[in-house]
Design a protein around this nucleic acid. Structure first.
Lengths: 197, 197
DNA sequence: TTTTATTGATTGATCAATCAATCAAGCCTA
DNA sequence: TAGGCTTGATTGATTGATCAATCAATAAAA
């Protein structure tokens, strides 16, 4: 059984399993046993590779963020206009993968864990800044500095809020969520035009 | 020491202490010891009055929501116009008390706990519906049915999102948060007027 | 003396973390 | 190329700490 070069395979399986477990329970309090079981290994092996539960969790968040960044970069790369960039950012935020009940639940759990673990907080702050700057990359050319900032801030808050509501089960469907954010931005941009024309 | 009629006093002290403890740690994993200590009693007494940790937590959420409803009702009662009703709802959501780091952290922790405890989920759903209907009480007279619904949905999501960001420490100040939501609603209402006039 | 308030001590369960032991692959050397 | 040596992979069992929950006991009203 023991083949060489297992490390990267096990690490990936374990971080995936951690997000899966946290998403399924909707809470941070999953056991190493549960996570390891989902990854098909013993709890002891998880400790062997990650040293502690905390480090496994941190690596899992890092992996989730990496994936999200990858998706965002890809979506932005294929957008031709500023307006299209904005829509791309929104579409990624509400993509099937990211807006699933499981991932949203894990996401929310991580937000709470950030209160305790500074490294998690740091990672989530990076996500918040990235969402903001991605929105700004589309809004910048379409509005003045302060207007763009304000619109981005509102849109980002709305996106996060729609996530929470999804986690609670009272949330909107993906399509409606996208429409709501798009409408907010569209209306704000229209109002700016009306002001200058 | 043992005086008669202590029960209501202890219950209040314990639910207050629970929110305080959860807010301070930013997590649901506070011990009965910690909560009881803050209330100045022994852990055993907390069990005596509430039966279990779960019930104490549930009662604490109920108390928090009761307070929020009370504030909202009071603010709405003194609002003269529809527009003032909207502002009143926003003002309560971002009142000094509700938007403090501690309460926001507790709030977020409860959202996560809702995944596990159906009763908590039920209570938070009630809050979400109430926020929505409070907003609608002001928006209803100012816009058509479907427009009002849409604007309320967006505003509610934005409010929740601003809460999350506050919890993460990257959030806006109270004044800026209020301004952002007010601006969203104002701009949406203007756009509707422009459409019909 | 019955009832209410209150606690210290104990129990039992749950877990993260550690450790010693096993097992198989490559690798070196005679 | 056969036989040992090393190293990475893996686990079962154990430890130690933490807590919720229980209980028996005490103390003061009424």
């Amino acid at each position: 059984m023991p083949k060489i070069g297992m490390e990267p395979i096990r690490r990936k399986a374990l971080t995936d399993a951690a997000i899966e477990a946290i998403g399924a329970r909707g809470t941070m309090d999953v056991t190493m046993s549960d996570i390891a079981g989902r990854a098909g290994v013993s709890p002891a092996l998880a400790h062997h590779y990650f040293g502690s539960k905390n480090q496994l969790i941190t690596e899992s968040v890092r992996a989730l963020l990496r994936e999200l960044r990858h998706d965002a970069e890809h979506a932005l790369a294929t957008a031709r206009t500023s307006r299209a960039r904005i829509s791309a950012v929104i579409a990624v935020s509400f993509s099937e993968k990211q807006f699933s009940a499981e991932v949203v639940a894990a996401w929310l759990a991580f937000y709470v864990d950030a209160q305790r673990a500074p490294e998690i907080r740091r990672l989530l702050s990076i996500y918040a800044r990235r969402l903001h700057s991605n929105l700004m990359s589309g809004l910048g050319p379409l509005a003045g500095e302060s207007d763009a900032e304000r619109i981005a801030e509102g849109a980002a808050a709305m996106i996060d809020g729609l996530y929470i509501r999804k986690a609670l089960g009272t949330g909107l469907a993906r399509y409606d969520a996208v429409t709501l954010v798009e409408d907010h931005i569209e209306t704000q941009l229209l109002e700016i035009q009306g002001r200058t024309v």
